[in-house]
Simulated assay, not measured.
Amino acid sequence: MNLSISESNDHLKSVFFEKAYSPLVILNSELVFVDVNNAAETVSGLNRKQFIGKSLLDMFPYLKGTKRLESYKNVLKTGKPLGFDSVSFFTKDGIEHKFMIRAFKIGDFMGISTLDVTTLTDIIGELKNAKTSLQNANEHLKVQNQELEDFSYVVAHDLKAPLSNLKSLIKIVLSTNDISDELYPMVDRIGKVAEVMCSKIRGINDVMAVKSSFGEKHQKILFAEIIENIKLTHSEEIINSRTIIKEDFSKCPFIEYNPSHIDSILLNLMSNALKYRHPNRKLNIKISTKVIKGRTHLFFKDNGIGFDENLATNKIFGLFKRMHTHVDGLGVGLYIIYTIIKKNGGNIKVKSKINIGTEFTIQF
């Protein structure tokens, strides 16, 4: 038998109602159940006959006097739909389910559709607990890091004076004629060890000084002025080595940054370029800046002896890590640069080839 369009539509609606994955119910204007679908029977553990003809309060007496009950009545009165994000429902076995509920008017009736979000709610709860645990762990790590930094500062500060005194005493002993030829090499070696230890302590103090300056206000700084001051600092070495320095700050003449930090970055880059210049050619240094996608970029390039760029980042930028040992150095400069840039939300990349040169690209 052929169904009319109206009958066909009613049939499709009936099939949709029954086959829906989520519980659906229909109540009349007195909040009495008119129909429930299969999913509602499954979740509640009750059959359709146990619902039909019963009022909402008969089935869920705990709703009496609640705002939710008044909200349902208001849907029937005004026709405005409403929703609840997380409503608890307990089965006859005491199992809790969490539902999102949507109530809406259908003619003189009210339909209620639900979505079981129990699993999602549990996951969200677990994520919140995990977030809290991570926050607590992070706070604990911050405290530990601060304690370690304080300890490092105290150790470095307290060891500086006695080590300097030891170094001075060893020099005095070596300058006298009272030391035997057998003991002289040993005492001399002790002096060199003391010198290394003093250098390490100075390096730690430099690092601690930089870290203690985080949080200071940023200021407008002209790159040309910073470079000019750095050239004055290294003027003798620049002149004696006949170093050529080319600057181009036309595309980005200034930056808003911590003055001591930008000075430290450029000073260490310049110091390294001069220190590791190639012995068989004149040192050329090129410094330029530009804005890329709203971020200030600094390019610092030299034609020095270079190093193997395939070394791990923690080797290149690690504390007391050195690319070359044929000249004096602590291996602190690049670590300080890396620490400053990362702490300020920037990034640094390096390209280098042995006997060709090195280029640093810094994104502030």
Rank of each mutant, 00 (worst) to 15 (best):
N165W: 02
N165D: 14
I170V: 15
I172C: 06
T176I: 03
S180E: 05
P185Y: 00
V187S: 04
R189I: 01
I190H: 07
G191I: 00
V193N: 11
A194W: 07
V196A: 05
M197F: 06
C198W: 01
G215Y: 08
E225A: 02
I226N: 01
E228C: 04
N229T: 00
N229G: 14
K231A: 03
K231S: 10
H234N: 13
E236Q: 13
E237T: 15
N240C: 06
R242P: 04
R242M: 07
T243E: 11
T243M: 10
T243F: 05
K246S: 06
D248K: 08
K251Y: 08
K251Q: 14
I255K: 08
E256F: 12
N258C: 12
D263G: 05
M270I: 04
S271A: 14
A273Q: 07
R277C: 06
R277E: 06
P279G: 06
P279T: 07
K282F: 04
L283C: 14
L283P: 10
N284P: 05
K286S: 11
K286W: 06
K286H: 10
K286D: 10
S288W: 00
T289Y: 02
K290M: 11
V291H: 04
K293P: 00
T296G: 01
H297R: 07
H297T: 02
F300M: 00
I305E: 00
